[in-house]
Design a binder for these strands. Structure first.
Lengths: 229, 229
DNA sequence: GCTAAAACCTGACAAAAATCATATTCCTTC
DNA sequence: GAAGGAATATGATTTTTGTCAGGTTTTAGC
């Protein structure tokens, strides 16, 4: 296993690529490699973070507890994502909790490395800014979808998103398998409604299932549904 | 009217306060003061912006058109806000359109000023980053509210938000008067539903109205409703 | 102050989604 | 491979919300 940040491919996908060689070296010396098992938390909502997590492998769901007691997944973070950046930069407690959706490999990077580099390396600051700007745009899109689309459309969209971002296995099933309950809290609906709609999609030939694994059978059909036909 | 950025109080509320004197001077020389009448657009969704808008007075709604043809207001920008920062920094077309909710006074600042300063002044970059981090957190909260709260709760919350952020006039009415339709597109609901719920709130003594003007009569009641009682 | 247009309001109905209850299947663990 | 628990599935019902269709009031412009 390659253990130096300088040679880590994952870095290409995130803001760390804008760091200088020396800065990266410091990060690499300070970082702590960690394995997190499926279902285990990286951190809880309201916690103060001492650094950020760079995802080497696996997927984490970032969610927030609503006053009605239900969890809402705000984002899925996968290979290359840097988790906790927002709170570390703002110097605030986290507004989200992070839980591993499958087995993960992550590197913890102390906040000093991040904050120092931000102050000294404008290239890096601007790169982080670009990433954050992108996240903000995505968040705007989610807001519009949540408020203007039906549950059926949002579920269809979720499957297309999963296929696009995590791909499929050899048999064509979605590579990232989420429980129906997780899908519900991504989409923001009751678990029963989610299951019901998945059944409906099966009957209509949009999806095929095998246990909890799901395969998209009619991508175009789903896309049309999202657009509102 | 004070026309130099260096002396503009509005600047205290936004990221421009982290600029140096010389940088600010350049901004001041380059900026263009503008008045925008109620209902007029600052820019449209999908447009490429040549700079950002600093709000001196008035309020603008930032909204996005959904595929179902309805507008969703994502944010209300008021005195001190800098509009268009996200797209200018990401170098992308705007994902939102901006329309004046009441008469506005704004300063247009060319993007070169912003981008140059970002590259040269880390203090400024970090300050912008902090603001963007804050916006991102707010967006997360909106996502959770949209998906987990009822329309009734969201409307109650909207009024509390309006009172908190824009205050009340001498008679106690909300200082920012939005049409029922605008409220609907903030909350993400049908105009009729919005009107119906406002009527209900009146009957229950939470609100009082006079024409389109609205006064919060029972703040605590509204708060409890938002919490889910 | 008059008038037209826009905004607001209300009722009746339909559709969407949540909730509650109860099967059934799947998957782990012994 | 059997037992038990968790996840998935489905039915019945209620609640919430949207839509359509008509009213009334307010507001802006002359």
């Amino acid at each position: 296993m390659e253990s130096r940040c300088e040679n880590c491919i994952v870095r290409q996908f995130n803001s760390l690529r804008a760091m200088s060689k020396e800065e990266l070296k410091k990060v690499s010396d300070a970082k702590v490699f960690k394995k997190v098992k499926k279902g285990e938390p990286l951190f809880e909502e309201g916690q103060k973070l001492d650094g950020v997590f760079c995802v080497r492998d696996g997927v984490s769901k970032l969610s927030k507890l609503s006053t009605n007691g239900k969890d809402q997944v705000v984002k899925l973070a996968t290979k290359g994502a840097v988790i906790g950046q927002r709170s570390v930069i703002a110097g605030e407690h986290t507004n989200l909790s992070a839980v591993a959706v499958n087995d993960m490999e992550i590197c913890f990077v102390p906040k000093e490395n991040i904050l120092n580099t931000l102050q000294k390396n404008p290239e890096y600051a601007v790169e982080v800014l670009r990433h954050m700007a992108h996240d903000l745009k995505e968040a705007d899109d989610v807001i519009v979808n949540m408020s203007q689309k039906t549950v059926k459309q949002r579920i269809a969209e979720a499957f297309l998103y999963l296929q696009q971002n995590f791909g499929v296995d050899k048999e064509g099933f979605l590579a990232l398998t989420l429980s129906r309950e997780d899908i519900s809290s991504v989409v923001g609906t009751a678990t029963e409604s989610c299951i019901r709609i998945i059944s409906e999609f099966k009957k209509k030939g949009y999806l095929e299932t095998s246990g909890k694994r799901i395969k998209i059978a009619d991508e175009k059909g789903l896309q049309e549904l999202v657009q509102g036909f």
